[in-house]
Nucleic acid binder design. Sequence first.
DNA 1: TCAGTAGCTGACCGATCGGTCAGACTCTGG
DNA 2: CCAGAGTCTGACCGATCGGTCAGCTACTGA
Lengths: 200, 200
Amino acid sequence: MARAVPETHDEILTAATRRFAATGYRGTSLQDIAREVGCSKAAVLYHFANKEAILTELMAPAIAVLQSLDERIALATDPADAQRVAAEGFVNLAVRFRREIAVLRGDFPELLAQPAFAHIQRISERLVDALAGHPERPSARIAALVLLAGISEACGEFLDLGEEVLRPALLALVTRGLEPVDRPAPPHSSTPVPPIHTED
Amino acid sequence: MARAVPETHDEILTAATRRFAATGYRGTSLQDIAREVGCSKAAVLYHFANKEAILTELMAPAIAVLQSLDERIALATDPADAQRVAAEGFVNLAVRFRREIAVLRGDFPELLAQPAFAHIQRISERLVDALAGHPERPSARIAALVLLAGISEACGEFLDLGEEVLRPALLALVTRGLEPVDRPAPPHSSTPVPPIHTED
DNA sequence: TCAGTAGCTGACCGATCGGTCAGACTCTGG
DNA sequence: CCAGAGTCTGACCGATCGGTCAGCTACTGA
């Protein structure tokens, strides 16, 4: 049953994304993915070296955006700016990669322990610090972690909502929820909260 | 190696709570629990009918409190009161049962699908409605779901924090994050909350 | 003293997991 | 026409899973 157009590779990826998001990485067997694609388990393992390779490939785009966000946060001029960049950037990332983030739901700690995702943990920590604004203040860290985890966890529930609804709602929630950072030395600032633009 | 005092039952429960919270329900085998207790896998299955029975027993206290919270929400006089009861009640529950909630992290959807936890799903939906205040408004539902999921997800990270730090921080975050509900007929009160314009 | 029972063990079971392998099929270039 | 590459399959592997079972040990009450 060899296909003329070898699109099986991408079909496996989309099927795996659906199944991982629905029942988790560990809760999805290669047999499940093969059944959804309509091929044999061996065919899945022909296109991918192993189960983990499927995960890393389908997460790659989201991880790339996360890394670029990390770099942009590092380039922020002050903590207040870093907080703004982190908040807007993460909301955009969460909205755009809803399905991929939903994949991580559940097996997050174990998956992060894998060497392929080792650096993600460090990025996440820096993201929490930037969102908190005052990383040394427990209440600020708590707010940042709850919002980060909540958005990651919940945006898988909003797969049917349009981005134009989800994005502003999440951004408003984050803006309300995070503790504000005193800007260092406002030179001529009259607008404490600049308008929100979405850029990747 | 029969013990004089049969405390194995409770040891299994505490070991299972630790392991479930660390690696998830599915990610923990009966062998893992037995190893941590220091007995055989068969001994674990002597004290509990099956793996699910361990989970239901260790979750029972938290579920009982959740159910009583559900009843108290149902008794609220108006949506604003229901929102306040739900917010305070859930924060208290989350702080108190941090470890038990961390157990659910990950396998939540699959575990809820089990008949023993069927009613929890309905309670969770009512909890989200109460927290949202305006369940018909997408932004309100989003805020409620993100905060609910975020607190559930994140409070497992705060096992070392004291309740006196965690509880007020979470309560403040929820109060800031949730969209306020217009009280039905304010006798003499003016709106104490700052205006937040999030209309869809 | 001794039968009964609670507590526990090692051996074992069928099912399922991720992964391997030899071979078969189709298509294409020489 | 045919060799070879790309694609896919069924059969199979060892490991691990949740769960069962017969039997051993130590204690207890009659």
